[in-house]
């Protein structure tokens, strides 16, 4: 049991979850900010697209902390992916590995599967659906729902707001439906 080894290997849920939970008091104490990520997408629209759309007509500069926060998330990813990189393949349930092999998804070297997500795959129907349509649904759905996993499932549930529980149940139902009912058809596309 080597501490460095433990640090490099995948962190267990009981370390990661509490650290994520601490983001809530950290942001509140830093400046009364409610933990949330997906509103950053809205602030980007408000900042970059000058149009008379009421939904984007607000002073995004007052929310600029959120853009600094997501820039930090990207930097954190960079640090974790380089300085703290784990040389081992990703952890994956054997049943999932066997299931995905049927669809030719066998490269387990990266957490974002290279068989599905790469620049060339954008030229295939499968890649286009997963990357472009999937991304669109994330952006459209989170704003329609008024939050994502951070804002509803973590911040909303931690402050005991039942509408956030409704949103979280909807997220999970959508995810179950995609993974179990629709994704097999998408993965079969070449």
């Amino acid at each position: 049991m080597n501490l460095i080894e433990d640090f490099r290997g995948p962190w267990p849920w009981y370390v990661a979850g509490p650290l994520i939970g601490l983001a809530i008091p950290a942001l509140l104490i830093m400046g009364n900010k409610a933990f949330g990520i997906s509103s950053s997408l809205r602030h980007v629209c408000a900042a970059c697209i000058p149009a008379k759309v009421p939904y984007f007509s607000y002073d995004w500069r007052k929310e600029v902390w959120n853009l600094f926060f997501v820039a930090g998330v990207l930097l954190g990813g960079l640090i974790a992916g380089t300085l703290l990189a784990d040389p081992d393949p990703v952890q994956i349930a054997p049943s999932l590995a066997a299931y995905l092999a049927q669809f030719g998804v066998t490269d387990l070297s990266e957490m974002v599967p290279l068989d599905l997500f790469n620049w060339e795959s954008l030229l295939t129907l499968r890649g286009l659906l997963l990357i472009v349509v999937g991304g669109f649904l994330v952006g459209f759905g989170t704003r329609y729902a008024g939050g994502c996993t951070s804002g509803h499932s973590i911040m909303g549930l931690a402050t005991l707001q039942w509408p956030s529980l409704v949103a979280t149940i909807a997220f999970m139902v959508g995810g179950f439906a995609m993974t179990n009912l629709i994704l097999p058809f998408i993965l079969n596309l070449k």
């Binding site: 954190g76 990813g77 990266e110 999937g134 459209f140 008024g146 909807a170 439906a177």
Partner: peptide
Amino acid sequence: QVYGGLLFGLGWAMTGACPGPLYAQIGAGA
């Protein structure tokens, strides 16, 4: 929260990421 939540759930399972992880994926090299 229901309609948007369902749509986001579909996208979450397709991309394998909610918005926070999307930013972190870019940083991590994807």
